[in-house]
């Protein structure tokens, strides 16, 4: 039983990291209807920038601030050069554009900062501590805490600030939002900036876990089933979906994996997502607005 619980907990903590990535997607999807494939590349770019700055001797805070600035600058450029010319195009074209964008960002990241694996030390040990009889990694606890804090900040921003409310207005009804004077390009710039900063946070936590390297950009692929299960347009859904995917994935790996000779974690989440699509197409928390047949 303890083994089961520990597998569950380690799955949940992987799920927290999926959630962190998925939140970035939800933000952009809500505000602009774009499924941003480049989220993973942004994560890679942010963590590479941060790690390079730290290795060059910048103090933690300076490196963090500079990277955040770089991500905001990137968001402004993306809005101006990619999103604005593609306004009103169908979702697939926008998706392909972000795919092209991910080539550019990954290429830039590795061209400017090399493709070596960087170790990232956030100063938290990956030692297990005992919580109520279960051994849980200290780092996982920290990551969960960071995710919670991030979500708390985001929900305060979205619910209390003027900017957050206009963002929700755009997500709700773009045309109505525009007609009361909300500037769409500005909202996009802000949303992509916030998504960039979320990517930074997720990148630091993932990077500390498995080293800052190219494979970080692949976490994008895990975000799609998370989003389908949780619903594309809900931050709470992203978190629950992430936890669900993380937990079922590691349980399936332990309990189904041996039956079929090997790890099932590459595809299990997708099959789960397809089941969800068939049973509950809008996801757990998504808007009913999703087009159904």
């Amino acid at each position: 039983m303890n083994f089961f619980l520990e597998t569950l907990v380690s799955g949940l903590s992987a799920g927290v990291m999926y959630s962190l990535v998925a939140i970035g997607f939800v933000l952009i999807y809500k505000a602009s209807g774009v499924f941003n494939f480049a989220q993973g590349s942004m994560l890679l770019f942010a963590s590479l920038t941060f790690v390079t700055l730290v290795e060059k001797g910048a103090p933690f805070g300076v490196a963090l601030g500079t990277t955040a600035l770089v991500m905001i600058l990137g968001a402004i450029l993306i809005e101006r050069l990619v999103l604005r010319p593609l306004v009103n195009r169908d979702a697939l074209t926008l998706f392909m554009a972000t795919l092209g964008l991910s080539f550019v960002i990954e290429g830039l990241a590795q061209l400017l900062m090399g493709s070596d694996v960087h170790m990232l030390d956030l100063g938290i040990d990956d030692l297990p501590v005992s919580v109520g009889g279960l051994m849980i990694s200290q780092f996982d606890l920290f990551a969960s805490g960071a995710a919670l804090a991030l979500v708390a900040v985001l929900s305060i921003v979205f619910n209390k600030t003027r900017m957050g409310i206009s963002l929700r207005a755009v997500a709700d009804d773009t045309l109505a939002a525009q007609s009361i004077g909300i500037r769409l390009p500005a909202i996009w710039r802000i949303v992509w900036s916030v998504a960039g900063i979320v990517a930074l946070a997720a990148g630091l936590i993932w990077g500390a876990r498995q080293g800052v390297q190219y494979s970080l950009s692949l976490v994008t692929l895990k975000a799609l089933p998370v989003l389908i299960i949780g619903g594309f347009s809900s931050i709470a859904g992203a978190i629950v979906g992430g936890l669900l995917v993380g937990a079922t994935e590691s349980l399936a790996d332990i309990y189904i994996g041996p039956l079929v000779q090997g790890s099932v974690s590459t595809w299990f989440a997708y099959i789960l997502a397809v089941v969800f699509l068939l049973v509950r197409p809008a996801g757990l928390f998504g808007d009913r607005a999703i087009e159904r047949v």
Binding site: A91, P225, T266, W267, Y270, I290, E291, R292
Partner: peptide
């Protein structure tokens, strides 16, 4: 089969599942 119940971009998930499943 999921196309019987949903449409649009969400369908991508099912075929993406095929992608990973058959590679595996």
């Amino acid at each position: 089969l999921p196309s019987l119940r949903i449409k649009g971009f969400y369908l991508g998930a099912s075929t993406l599942g095929a992608q990973f499943f058959f590679e595996w």
